[in-house]
Design a protein around this nucleic acid. Structure first.
Length: 215
DNA sequence: GGATGGATTGGCT
DNA sequence: GCCAATCCATCCA
């Protein structure tokens, strides 16, 4: 394992090849890193601590099936979920928002984890202190990262990431600095069409974190 | 070449 | 709580 920031470890692609439910749960509290290269300034790294993920687990999952069914001729973008865990699956929805998925699990089954929310890691200590306060202004700041569309927009995630490795050379990677928050299970969001799979408890959230909705 | 429908968000009734 | 915005992969004629 290579060193990242102080006391942090960069998660290698093989970390994501474990069972998807485990990956999705373990991602809570990890740090999503995005290297931003501005046109005329030095490259910098945005670090976002993950507070909410969702697991999408195989052909028996109605939501995954729907994605795969889009390409019956066998070459849809969703087929990337059949890859070995450790690459990105980016997906544009409603013509407006890009979803950031991490392909997980083995090559036998189409599985991925959707990153739904997080907060700036540099501000984490201050934000955690502010949890005890309840100013609207602070909540507004935190909400900037609540929701998959906002997250990808803020981190300047683009479709070029599709199929890239989850590693620093792609510009986006995950670090583990030992943070282990309490995790809660919830039903997934926005997939009512997926039949009974819509009720499966495959959404993982940082228990009682203020950046999350109250559902 | 045209039609369709989202793993969402934010603004308005 | 309802609904329009807005892109593009995929499907159908």
């Amino acid at each position: 394992m290579s060193k990242a920031k102080t006391n942090s470890i960069i998660l290698e692609p093989s970390w994501f090849a474990r069972p998807t439910c485990v990956v999705a749960a373990d991602l809570i509290g990890k740090v999503l890193c995005r290297r931003i290269t501005d046109t005329d300034s030095v490259p910098k790294v945005l670090r976002v601590r993950i507070t909410e993920t969702e697991a999408y687990i195989g052909e028996q999952d109605g939501s995954v099936a729907a994605h795969l069914a889009k390409g019956k001729k066998g070459n849809s973008l969703a087929d990337i979920m059949y890859a070995e865990g450790g690459v990105f699956y980016t997906y544009l929805t409603y013509g407006v928002h890009l979803m950031l998925n991490l392909v997980s699990g083995t090559a036998e089954s189409p599985e991925s984890v959707l990153i739904r929310a997080g907060f700036l890691a540099e501000d984490s200590e201050r934000l955690l202190e502010e949890q005890n306060l309840s100013s609207d202004k602070q909540l507004t700041h935190i909400k900037q990262f609540a929701g998959p569309g906002k997250l990808t927009k803020r981190l300047q995630i683009d479709r070029a990431l599709y199929g890239s490795s989850i590693a620093p050379e792609s510009g986006v990677w995950i670090e583990d600095d030992g943070c282990l928050p309490l995790v809660s299970l919830r039903p997934r969001i926005g997939i009512d069409y997926a039949g009974e799979a819509a009720d499966w408890l495959l959404r993982y959230v940082w228990t009682a974190h203020p950046s999350l909705s109250k559902k």
